[in-house]
């Protein structure tokens, strides 16, 4: 099992969110649910930013319950502010190799290759303000690519893009997932996007429901989900 939540409880203020389930390695999981239900809180908790009030978290068998954010085997893409505006595209990706930007030649070649893979081969010297929204997302994805973490978390990083561009980005994510065989958990408001995932969890009433096969869930949605949809 890639991601195992054992009686996990995350909290922000007085709000509590519980999760108690496992997700198989290499699978993709879509989190859907009303605004404020705790989808972002859950990803923030998995990444080690939000406060844990109990339970255990294991990723690929390792207990990371108390690990520092940078030591967890995952990459979280935030809703916004995924790039530092004062660093070039190259430097933003290079942070994924070394947080001090100290790169040897091999590492530099690796960064260039990652940018080429997200189809931005000639953009390495540009700054985020000189890139379109889609291109900025690609830079952030290139960094996720180069970090090679087995778990990728997406907190709606593509929500500011148009529907076509968003699907393009999700397709790119799928490609990366295929190559690196990583597990994916993403937040979405679109049932269409959720249907592309292997599993779906409905987040409501203070809990992240046990993942259910996407096809089965949408063919016969329970009453609460039907109401939300």
């Amino acid at each position: 099992m890639a991601v195992t939540c054992e009686n996990l409880i995350f909290g922000r203020g007085t709000f509590r969110l519980a999760a108690d389930w496992s997700l198989p390695s290499g699978a993709s999981l879509a989190l859907i649910g009303p605004s404020g239900a705790g989808k972002s809180l859950f990803l923030g908790g998995l990444a080690g930013f939000d406060v844990r009030h109990g339970g255990q978290l294991r990723i690929d068998g390792a207990d990371v319950t108390d690990a520092a954010p940078q030591d967890r085997p995952l990459t979280l893409m935030f809703q916004d502010h995924n790039l530092f505006p004062h660093l070039s595209a190259f430097q933003n990706v290079a942070l994924g190799v070394d947080p001090g930007l100290r790169l040897n030649d091999a590492a530099k070649a690796e960064v260039t290759a990652a940018l080429a893979q997200v189809e931005l081969p000639d953009m390495s010297a540009r700054y985020p303000s000189e890139l379109s929204g889609g291109q900025q997302s690609r830079v952030a994805l290139a960094r996720a690519l180069i970090r090679r973490r087995p778990l990728l978390l997406l907190d709606e990083p593509f929500s500011a893009l148009g529907p076509g561009l968003r699907r393009e980005m999700l397709a790119l994510v799928e490609t990366i997932r295929g190559q690196q065989n990583c597990t994916l958990i993403f937040v979405t408001h679109s049932p269409e996007d959720a249907k592309t995932a292997d599993f779906v969890s409905f987040v409501h009433d203070g809990s992240v429901a046990k993942p259910v096969a996407a096809q089965a869930l949408f063919d016969d949605p329970p009453a609460t989900l039907q109401e939300y949809l």
Binding site: A47, A68, Q70, H81, F84, H86, L95, G100
Partner: peptide, 24 residues
Amino acid sequence: RNYGRLGTSLGLSGWDRTRLMLWP
């Protein structure tokens, strides 16, 4: 608020955090 989590998740700490995030 805007970049703290990004910096932390990338392991920016100590001198690197000051140099690459706080100083700019």
